[in-house]
Design a protein around this nucleic acid. Structure first.
Lengths: 156, 156
DNA sequence: AGAATTCCGACCATAGTGCTCGGGAATCAA
DNA sequence: TTGATTCCCGAGCACTATGGTCGGAATTCT
């Protein structure tokens, strides 16, 4: 392509985050009811099962889900739904919340020589903390519950 | 690559947004002092001038800057620095703030059939409004001023 | 006229996205 | 023990986005 203007969308969450979140909410809904197979999730959520395998592998390595092999096996949440936040899921699948390398989470990295005269660092810092706070404030329990009842009315 | 785990970073702002924001803050600092050439900006901010041309073209089409050709020409902000927000700049360069297509800005699009039973839509909705509020709350005037004084001390 | 500078569009290399496919290993049931 | 089920693992692949470069036209100032 070229000097393209059609910049698609800012802060877009890829299918990793999207599908992964749906997977986790699905597991939250069935929490306490034994293992859930990826096949079942893929069917309910209408997602490609082979692709979900990749995503759930990441979630397992992040310690968010437990896998059980064999017939009757499947996945379960590693902790109760109220103890897993949207931030946990997003960070596992999409990486650390980090608008810029100089605004990484946790450690205030000072690897940029322009640091002091940088007029834009504040933007990305604020953004980082804002996003993190929002995501860390939502648990899978809430998300699973919110959709039990059908009233998804959000004021703009 | 393959089933890669090294997911780089979530909510990463590309160089379009990064460089563009630095360009705009630079223009804000020189607001009222006539046109500023891209050459000067590129030198001060240590950015590739040819690439900046592309970015500033987008900003001009978005009505955020004005270009003046010829010797002594350059760019100026189209409005006063206090009337341009970080959100304006980011939206122009990176596209609308839209974590998911079903959570586009402005119009609550209902193009998703899963809508009602979708447990994750609330996450992206909240994220969208959170990000937009943060970015729209910062003006170029503030950013330009903040770095005049050297105290960039932000509590984590 | 000549220099400066914006404007415009083509081109290109690399990496990330969004999957598919094949096969191995564990577990359960008949 | 055989087979079905399911997780687990790694390779491959098409497409798009990213992050630029380059050459040249048009405009304006001196």
């Amino acid at each position: 392509m070229l000097g393209n203007q059609t910049t698609p969308a800012a802060f877009h969450v890829s299918t990793r985050g999207e599908y992964g979140m749906r997977l986790m909410v699905d597991l939250a809904r069935h929490y306490g009811g034994g293992s859930v197979s990826l096949h079942a999730v893929a069917e309910r959520e209408e997602l490609p099962e082979a692709y979900l395998e990749q995503l759930v592998a990441i979630l397992r390595k992040a310690g968010l889900v437990l896998g059980k092999r064999g017939a009757g096996g499947g996945y379960t949440l590693a902790r109760e739904p109220a103890a897993i936040t949207a931030g946990d899921v997003v960070r596992a699948l999409e990486g650390p919340i980090e608008p810029q390398v100089c605004t990484a989470e946790g450690d205030p990295v000072f690897n940029c020589v322009r640091e002091q005269r940088c007029g834009t660092r504040l933007v990305w810092l604020k953004l980082q903390s804002t996003i993190a706070t929002a995501l860390d404030g939502m648990t899978l329990a809430e998300l699973a519950r919110q959709t039990q009842q059908q009233d998804v009315t959000v004021a703009p």
